[in-house]
Structure formats: C-alpha cells, structure tokens
Simulated assay, not measured.
Amino acid sequence: MAMLGEISHTTTYRYATPVTFGTHRAMFLPRRGASARLLSWSVETSVPSTIRWVTDSRTNAITVMDFSEPSSELKIAFQVRGVYFGVKGIEAFPLESRADEVPVQYTPDEWTDLAGYLRPHAEDPDGSVAAWTKNFVAGDQDQTIDVLQRMLSSFRSFSYCARDTEGTQSPSDTLHKRSGTCRDFAWLMIETLRRLGFAARFVSGYLYDAALDGGAVGMTGSGATHAWLQVFLPGAGWLDYDPTNSISAGFDLIPVAIARHPGQAIPLAGSWIGDAKDYLGMSIDVAVRKIGEFRDPSEG
C-alpha cells in the first residue's frame, strides 16, 4: 500500500526587539529509501538567508541556514510531498533463526557495524533500568517478538506529559515518574533493549494520524514532530517501534533523523545575539496530510 502525503512544518521565533541570528541547522527532510519516495521539498525563511543541504555521518539530511539581517521575528517554513509505503505487520518480515530468541546472535560484521547502537549510552545510577529490563525475559519468556511486544505494551501504563523545556529525560527519570514525552519513552525503550543485547537507535520524524483527515485526533504526538525507535533484527532489518502509540507497522511513522541518542536528532537548533529578556517565545505548526492514493505508473 502507498499513500501520497504532504508535510508542512513552520517554526516561528519572536523577540521584543530585532536580534541577530547565528547559523541554524534543521532536520525536517524525510529519509528516502524503501519506505519513502520524495517528490518535492522546499524551505522558506522570513529573514533573508543562504540555505544549503548537507548530510551528517548517519546520512541524515541537514538544512543549514545563515541569516543576513536582524529581525524581531524569524519564521522557517518547510514543505514536503512524498509517497510513503507501509506494511501490515511484523509477519511481513520473517526473522532468521538466530534472531528468534533473546539474545539475538549478530554476526561479527553486524557487531562491528552496529556497535554504536548496541552499547548503552545513558547512566543507570540506581540500577532501576537494569532491574526493569529483567521483567521482559523472566522465566522462559525469551522469544524475540514476544519480548518486543511486551515491552511496547508496558508503556500503556505510562502517562504522556508534554512539556515546554528542551531535552530528553534520562531513562531512569522516566521510569520513576512513569510519565514523559514521546522522546522520553523512546529513549527508555532503547536503553532497555540495549541492555538485552539488541541494536536499537533513536528516530525523530513525523506521525501520520488518519483521524486528523476527518478533523479528530486519534494518536498521541500527531500535529508535532514525533520520536520512536528502530531495532535491528537479522532477516528483517531495522523495524520501527513507537512506545507512545504501540505502533510497529504501517506508514504512520515517517522517519527524518536517526541517531545513537536523542541529542543527535534535534529538529531545529540555532543561536541568536541579543538581550535574554527580548525572547518572547516560539510557536510550531505541523501538519501531516494524506492528499491521495499512489499508483506506480509502471504497474500500468
């Protein structure tokens, strides 16, 4: 199945008096590959700018913007059109036998390639994350897909709580609070999986919510940037898992950036020079819309 979709993402910063802007770096362009084909994309800024596109070491597309004039408002607007392909479920990806049970048996080449995604990154000062990890492989509960599904389902007991402050909670904080944002939930699941020997990576992107097409909201995190994770399973490759919405298939998740940890996947970062009290705040407007069905012309 394939969906023709459009993404618009506008960020507006406001200041009491004109300020000078440093370089801004944005991650808004969906990753191209087997699950996505980009048809067009653009970026516009309210302040005259020089824009260039680069890729980082993880092949994420980065938009680099340098501004030539001061202003009391900076608006950055991205728009993308593309085709997004989905799958019905994990059964579409038969695992190799070495991935059937925990721990997954990676090959030497895979260990080398996946090393950065296998090692835990966050501290676990009180051992709470390690203790929580054991719950998912207690007794003979070691079938890989079952472990992943139990872990995904466990987040239903957590409370989603949006916050204005930047950054991501530590996994232990999220576990103790039993609440957080999509970034917090993804980061906790990643660090839990790594302690079980899985290669897992952080993903930032967009969430398509079909309910929005009808004027309702059906999933948490729609209408904004979203975060989830991917797990590498031999035979299937990198598979998406969204602990916020218990999603593990379909074209609801549109990846933009992949990273070892959340700090490497900031949607928009930059600097400005002025008095701190001049900053009045920011607003973000995100829309992910289905604009039609896609049919490959080559299929006749």
Score class of each variant (00 low, 15 high):
106 Y>R: 00
106 Y>P: 00
107 T>F: 07
107 T>Y: 07
108 P>G: 06
110 E>V: 10
110 E>R: 04
111 W>R: 15
111 W>Q: 14
111 W>A: 12
114 L>Y: 06
115 A>Q: 14
116 G>E: 14
116 G>W: 13
117 Y>D: 11
117 Y>H: 09
118 L>C: 07
118 L>Q: 11
119 R>N: 08
120 P>H: 01
120 P>C: 05
120 P>I: 04
121 H>C: 14
121 H>E: 12
122 A>R: 12
122 A>I: 06
122 A>F: 14
122 A>Q: 15
123 E>D: 14
123 E>I: 03
123 E>Q: 14
124 D>V: 08
124 D>K: 11
125 P>K: 13
125 P>I: 08
126 D>P: 01
126 D>K: 04
127 G>I: 06
128 S>E: 14
128 S>N: 09
128 S>C: 09
129 V>K: 00
130 A>K: 10
130 A>E: 15
131 A>C: 04
131 A>V: 07
132 W>D: 13
133 T>E: 15
135 N>M: 09
136 F>S: 13
136 F>Y: 15
137 V>H: 05
137 V>L: 06
138 A>T: 11
139 G>A: 13
139 G>N: 10
140 D>S: 15
140 D>W: 02
141 Q>N: 15
142 D>N: 11
142 D>P: 01
143 Q>F: 09
143 Q>H: 06
144 T>P: 04
145 I>A: 15
145 I>V: 15
146 D>S: 14
147 V>S: 07
147 V>C: 08
147 V>Q: 11
148 L>I: 03
148 L>P: 10
148 L>A: 01
149 Q>A: 08
149 Q>F: 12
150 R>V: 05
151 M>H: 02
153 S>F: 12
154 S>P: 04
154 S>G: 03
154 S>C: 13
155 F>R: 02
156 R>C: 01
156 R>K: 04
156 R>I: 00
157 S>G: 04
158 F>M: 07
158 F>S: 05
159 S>H: 08
159 S>Y: 07
160 Y>R: 00
160 Y>E: 06
160 Y>T: 05
160 Y>Q: 05
161 C>L: 08
161 C>I: 02
162 A>Q: 12
163 R>L: 02
163 R>H: 08
163 R>I: 03
164 D>M: 03
165 T>P: 00
165 T>H: 04
165 T>S: 08
166 E>T: 10
166 E>C: 03
166 E>D: 14
166 E>W: 06
167 G>A: 08
167 G>S: 06
169 Q>M: 12
169 Q>W: 09
170 S>Y: 11
170 S>A: 15
171 P>I: 09
171 P>T: 13
171 P>F: 05
172 S>P: 00
173 D>W: 06
173 D>C: 03
174 T>M: 02
175 L>V: 09
175 L>P: 05
177 K>M: 05
178 R>G: 05
180 G>W: 06
